[in-house]
Amino acid sequence: MKNCTIFLLIAFCLKLSYCLGQAEVKLNDKDGMVLSYKKGKYFGERYDEYCKTTFDIYKVVGIVENKNQDKAAFVVAVLGFEGKTCNKIYNDNGPSGGEIIDKIYTLDIPGQTTHKSQYWVNKVVHLLPGDKMEATGYVEVKKGEPCPDAESNPYFTYELFSGANNNETANSEKVPANSIVEQPESKKVSYSELIVGKWTRIHLMNTSGVDDDLSEPGYYDEYRANGQLIHANAVENDESWDYHWSINGNIINMKSVYGPSHNEILFLDDNKLVIKTDWGNGKYAVETYKRVKDKPGKKAR
């Protein structure tokens, strides 16, 4: 009995040692930009009355580091950690209950960090040369399950700004209008203003394993100032007028004959739009769009 107790104690300690002592996991190291995360610090537990289940809670940390010595960076970095949650079920004919389902816990590093955004050669950036930022999140798994890992398809993009552009004038300054960065009041532009125009999708990443660069010549979405959203194919001169949009904070609210939907803006500036769509049950997609600019002499419809 004593030997059995010692064995169980050793096994428990090994589990804690693995979780607490897990080394930093590097996900990207390119162009001087490093994306990594720390996992496995046991934070506590929670008992769910609906699912009659205890969940272990783990603290995860996402890290982005700019190792360049002469370039600053504007970053979009979103990690998804696989975990569990209780899906509550309401039944008019019996007691309420729940079922345990998969859930992706999202960690938006630039959005959740305490690191302050900076100015660099007349642009707002997240990271100066040699700088780094961290963000903390919490992931739940069923009691006794392994420590959570980051999913296989993290969303990570960055734009580097070189010190060679120090001669840029204030008139050429383009400040990203994005809730992730801190902008002076005089520079702020609302999402509703900035999103107006034509956008074509160039990249798709989702939790089903799709991670594709896309090119759809002629296809675009047009956000009009009157609240209409037009899906169009310029090649076939085909349009769909069934959608209306509005923005609250960084959420795009869509209305159509198919029902309402709500998409989260992860990044938006003059030329680039990144949208996250929540499919439910821990599934989501991240789509990247670029602005379609009309050719010289051609008026927008």
Rank of each mutant, 00 (worst) to 15 (best):
123 K>E: 11
141 V>S: 05
126 H>G: 13
185 E>S: 06
140 E>K: 07
185 E>D: 12
179 S>Y: 10
135 A>K: 03
173 E>Q: 13
182 E>Y: 09
191 Y>P: 02
199 W>L: 00
127 L>E: 07
157 T>S: 06
126 H>A: 11
190 S>P: 02
179 S>A: 15
180 I>Q: 00
173 E>S: 11
128 L>Q: 14
204 L>R: 01
200 T>E: 00
120 W>A: 12
202 I>Y: 02
130 G>A: 12
153 N>F: 07
132 K>L: 05
147 C>N: 09
181 V>W: 01
201 R>D: 02
162 S>L: 09
155 Y>H: 01
200 T>R: 01
200 T>Y: 00
138 Y>T: 10
145 E>N: 09
157 T>H: 03
185 E>R: 08
202 I>W: 00
157 T>Q: 02
189 V>K: 14
161 F>M: 13
129 P>K: 15
149 D>M: 06
150 A>S: 08
141 V>K: 10
185 E>T: 08
141 V>E: 04
204 L>F: 01
160 L>T: 13
201 R>N: 02
177 A>H: 14
144 G>N: 07
163 G>P: 10
120 W>G: 11
151 E>F: 07
121 V>R: 08
128 L>V: 13
199 W>A: 00
139 V>P: 06
175 V>L: 04
145 E>D: 13
136 T>E: 07
180 I>M: 04
143 K>L: 10
128 L>D: 10
163 G>L: 15
162 S>R: 08
151 E>S: 12
198 K>N: 11
150 A>E: 15
122 N>I: 11
142 K>S: 12
191 Y>W: 08
165 N>W: 08
183 Q>W: 10
174 K>Q: 13
177 A>S: 15
184 P>E: 14
177 A>C: 15
189 V>D: 06
156 F>G: 02
149 D>I: 05
129 P>N: 15
193 E>Q: 13
189 V>W: 02
135 A>N: 03
169 T>P: 02
118 Q>F: 05
131 D>F: 07
145 E>P: 13
178 N>G: 01
179 S>D: 12
133 M>L: 08
154 P>L: 02
134 E>G: 12
200 T>C: 00
204 L>E: 02
185 E>W: 10
164 A>E: 15
148 P>A: 13
171 N>D: 11
125 V>Y: 08
188 K>R: 11
144 G>E: 09
163 G>N: 11
124 V>Y: 15
147 C>K: 10
148 P>C: 10
141 V>D: 03
182 E>V: 12
182 E>A: 14
192 S>K: 09
134 E>S: 14
169 T>G: 14
180 I>W: 03
195 I>V: 15
165 N>S: 13
136 T>R: 13
158 Y>L: 01
127 L>T: 07
154 P>F: 00
164 A>N: 11
129 P>I: 12
139 V>K: 05
150 A>D: 09
181 V>D: 01
180 I>T: 14
135 A>P: 04
134 E>K: 11
163 G>Q: 13
197 G>W: 03
127 L>C: 05
191 Y>L: 05
128 L>G: 14
169 T>S: 10
156 F>H: 06
145 E>V: 11
